[in-house]
Nucleic acid binder design. Sequence first.
DNA 1: TAACAAAGTTATACATAACTAACTTTTATG
DNA 2: CATAAAAGTTAGTTATGTATAACTTTGTTA
Lengths: 130, 130
Amino acid sequence: MTASAEDYLEAIFILSQKSKNAHVRVTDLASFLAVSKPSVTHAVGVLKEKGFLEHEAYGGIVLTPAGESCAANVLRRHNMIQRFLVHTLGVSKENAEADACRMEHILSAETIDKMYAYLEEKTMQAGETV
Amino acid sequence: MTASAEDYLEAIFILSQKSKNAHVRVTDLASFLAVSKPSVTHAVGVLKEKGFLEHEAYGGIVLTPAGESCAANVLRRHNMIQRFLVHTLGVSKENAEADACRMEHILSAETIDKMYAYLEEKTMQAGETV
DNA sequence: TAACAAAGTTATACATAACTAACTTTTATG
DNA sequence: CATAAAAGTTAGTTATGTATAACTTTGTTA
């Protein structure tokens, strides 16, 4: 699974949640990810081949359970990393967002786990709800 | 500057320090980075074009001041990130090393700074020398 | 319902970065 | 010093991921 593939799945997941009823469209993804429509068509084709989404020509894009699982994991990592950067290190929201976008694809499972545990501990100590 | 380019510069820097006198060779780099020799030849050509190193055909590879500066910065980030992962989060040395290899290329300057400050603070509190 | 706009696709090209195979140059050794 | 081994390069291939241009399909609206 490449970083690019994870980005597409994550984006489809986010856009699916935003607009409950409407299917996610190529144009939505192109706009959200700031890439061209042919890039989306191509990436969607690859992800369909791999069983992460369903898509008929000119139709809507829907994640399969495998795709949804992957996307949810990436998004969960993204949000956790961003919280960690902002709340533990004091990084600005903007930079934390940008860094989380890249870190979400490359951190080992152990680092993700330890980061989460550390964040939880700090949060408990501070008595906050993060 | 791509992640790959930074990896090559960092590797040349490390190998230069290891063997003081001897020039860094294509084979050394290929072995260190676990890539083929043609991959090294190609990458070295690109980095030479960009002014980060000097290299004559069949000769040794030497960083320019620009290349050395870049390499030293990458290595500094690498070591700091690894220390942070191990000492602050308790990540294993192996995973910390692997994660640092990837994080060194993607973190914002602010996150690097904040991570360093946090590490310093914790180190002071513990009275250790890290 | 005809025509136009929006959406989507296809074809093609480019950049990066890796590889293998084959070749050249350099170095070491008998 | 001739030859074999090691080192390095060149040529060509592959994979990923992006783009533009041109075309097709779909949807809207006058």
